[in-house]
Amino acid sequence: MAKKFSQEHEWVEYEDGVATVGITDYAQQSLGDIVYVELPEVGKKLTKDGDAAVVESVKAASDVYAPLDGVVVEANEELDDNPALVNEAPESDGWFFRMELSDESQLDELMDEAAYKDFVEGL
């Protein structure tokens, strides 16, 4: 399934019942060099728009919100050793966590790529 995007600059890719979440290329560019990502623990229940992770640059810490309701099933441990992945490959290898969704219909509330592009241009 094609990527979906939130207004908080997260992307979601939903496949085989599991959603992979990360931050968008636009988000990583505005944050600058990422030095650390605080990921949610596996098993953590996330609520849409609630705190999910924290992403840090040298001079700023930004909250990453859950784009959907669900439970974390995997966190990208690669980021512990190599947070630069978020800058280098934000929408592929730099993913943050995977979650099982409680309500698939929430996906419909997210933007598709074209809509997100328009959204970013309007900022």
Binding site: V35, Y36, E56, S57, V58, K59, A60, A61
Partner: peptide, 13 residues
């Protein structure tokens, strides 16, 4: 370093 833990960046957090 690791200043993001501190009050001047994280404020109430």
């Amino acid at each position: 370093t690791l200043s993001t833990r501190e009050q001047h960046i994280r404020r109430e957090k």
